[in-house]
């Protein structure tokens, strides 16, 4: 515990560092109050919100937390008439899983641009989807409408081989020859670092 409060302009704070007193600030994310004093709970940079009189700590290596606009990888669990239910496996920007493996939904109107007759032609159960978060609370709503978003990996419904992108943009099974229909992402078959199944990489790039 430092005896002097850490001014918000000063770089790094560690868990247990004194940020100020309860009269000065409300503890925001990454901060807590104990006995009238506000301390840091995370390793990061302090940030003061003058409107809310709140002090928070922006973590340098944070546990992923979903927010509106985030890109996520999700696995399709179930397809209903009006929506698909997915489990969010990780946020696309990080190689850490989202804690709690939360469930998200894609409404039939948000699966692709334009009218969708049936979600069964857009997703298959087990597909890996790149999606954008439309709403993070209280429930997670996702969209795959933009061209960059949609299915990034899918398996053949009859023989379970990984589907490959054909010359005319159609999905075909290289093993049994079946063709399937999906709302595919522009980068079908390519996984960003940190995506489940992508080659492992280090969360810390070499400093050289």
């Amino acid at each position: 515990m430092s005896t002097e409060p850490v001014p918000a302009s000063k770089g790094l704070v560690l868990p247990g560092d004194l940020l100020g007193t309860a009269e000065e600030f409300v503890p925001g994310l990454g901060a807590y109050e104990d006995g009238g004093r506000v301390y840091a709970a995370l390793l990061g940079h302090p940030h003061i919100d003058p409107q809310a009189r709140a002090i928070s700590v922006r973590a340098l290596h944070a546990v992923p937390r979903l927010a509106e606009g985030d890109l996520v990888y999700a696995r399709v669990d179930e397809i209903k008439s009006a929506m698909a239910i997915l489990t969010i496996v990780s946020s696309a920007g990080s190689n850490r899983g989202v804690p709690g493996a939360p469930e998200g939904t894609v409404h039939i109107s948000k699966a692709r641009d334009g009218y969708t007759e049936s979600l069964a032609t857009e997703f298959g159960v087990g597909d890996l989807v790149l999606a954008k978060v439309l709403q993070a609370h209280p429930t997670i709503k996702l969209t795959t409408a933009p061209p960059a978003l949609g299915v990034v990996a899918a398996r053949c419904q009859s023989c379970h081989a990984l589907l490959a992108l054909g010359p005319r943009g159609a999905l075909g099974c290289p093993r049994c020859g079946a063709t399937e229909s999906r709302k595919i992402a522009q980068g079908y078959g390519e996984l960003a670092p940190g995506a489940p199944g992508a080659p492992a990489h280090e969360h810390e790039p070499p400093s050289a």
Binding site: P64, S91, E190, G194, H203
Partner: peptide
């Protein structure tokens, strides 16, 4: 480890991969 700024947090990776 962190003060030198050599560490990139997970969120700093761009979605483009």
């Amino acid at each position: 480890r962190y003060a030198a700024g050599s560490v990139v947090s997970g969120a700093a990776f761009s979605a483009a991969g």
